[in-house]
């Protein structure tokens, strides 16, 4: 099967699920329910595409297929920044009230975090991949605990509620930032078109990429900023989903056997939309479960992750 055929199949599947989610079992107040569903679909699509895009480009510049921005703790960083602002400036601060300002601060902090992470961990291939992975996970735990810790300090009685009040989730999409998220995504894609072929060269490894005239350090820097912005967007919209990027990126590599980033990113984006919108549809309407999609993604993602680890380790050892 040719890659173009595969992409068409994915696109059709994505459309089917979007259609199902938008129209299935829509009772009574159509004018009430329909726009709400559309907003949710849009939010899930923007999130999914942002995660897919950022994960694929991040894995290309770090030359591996297991580490993702989320696994390295980038979305936990978003939570930390939010809680920090809330903790030190209070709920009435302009940084909390003004969503756009707040969002910009979070993005700046995440970009800084990503740069520090890259410079200390990835430069010069000092550490083996499993080491980085473990460090990333523990870092995630550390940032997560620190976040809750701060929340307890803010309100010792209500910290469990604070968590759900401060952060978005699939059941409580942050629609205010939807349009700015969409705008960011579009800008990111316009920029992406210019670097697609450089990313293709990048997958030959650092030395070959430099040999072929890629301005390596500049590209790495730009991609780190790009992934941070995208992860900030997705985390702001629906909260953290740690293993999602890993799943969709690797499914895309497996399904579309190509080095071309234009195809890989498109494929991963479509798989994301299918997984999020389709998954949400199945949870809400087929099984009528009350669980959230993140729980299912964590379950499936965990199993898939172990599978990937075992597969990689076999080729490594």
């Amino acid at each position: 099967m040719r890659n173009s055929t595969k992409i068409i199949i994915l696109a059709v599947l994505a459309l089917i699920f979007v259609g199902l989610y938008a129209f299935y079992d829509i009772k009574g107040g159509f004018s009430y329910a329909f726009p709400r569903r559309l907003i949710k679909i849009l939010a899930m699509s923007v999130t999914g595409v942002a995660i897919a895009y950022s994960t694929v480009v991040f894995q290309t510049i770090t030359h591996n297929r297991i580490l993702t921005p989320s696994v390295m703790g980038l979305d936990s960083m978003y939570m930390v920044v939010q809680t920090f602002i809330y903790f030190f400036l209070g709920s009435t601060s302009i940084l909390v009230m003004n969503k756009y300002l707040n969002f910009s601060i979070s993005i700046i902090a995440m970009v800084l975090f990503a740069l520090i992470l890259y410079r200390t961990l990835f430069r010069a291939d000092k550490y083996p991949i499993y080491f980085l992975l473990l460090v990333g996970m523990i870092l995630g735990t550390l940032l997560g605990s620190a976040t809750t810790f701060l929340q307890v300090l803010i309100d010792p009685n209500e910290y469990l509620n604070l968590q759900s009040k401060m952060f978005a989730s699939f059941s409580k999409v942050n629609a205010d930032l939807l349009w700015i998220g969409l705008a960011i995504l579009i800008v990111a894609f316009i920029y992406g078109f210019r670097i697609m072929s450089q990313l293709d060269v990048m997958s030959l490894g650092r030395e070959n990429a430099i040999n072929l005239g890629v301005n390596y350090d500049k590209l790495v820097m730009n991609v780190l900023v790009l992934s941070s912005v995208l992860i900030a967007t997705s985390t702001a919209l629906v909260g953290p989903i740690t293993f999602f990027g890993l799943i969709v990126a690797n499914l895309s590599y497996q399904f579309l056997t190509t080095y071309k980033h234009s195809v890989l990113i498109l494929g991963a984006s479509l798989i994301s939309i299918i997984a999020l919108v389709g998954g949400q549809f199945i949870i809400e309407h087929v099984f009528e479960l009350s669980t959230t999609l993140s729980v299912i993604i964590n379950f499936v993602g965990g199993i898939y992750f172990i599978y990937l680890l075992l597969r990689e380790s076999r080729s490594a050892g």
């Binding site: 997958s203 030959l204 490894g205 030395e207 070959n208």
Partner: peptide, 8 residues
Amino acid sequence: SNFMNVRL
């Protein structure tokens, strides 16, 4: 060393 992630 020409280690690559992609299959070409």
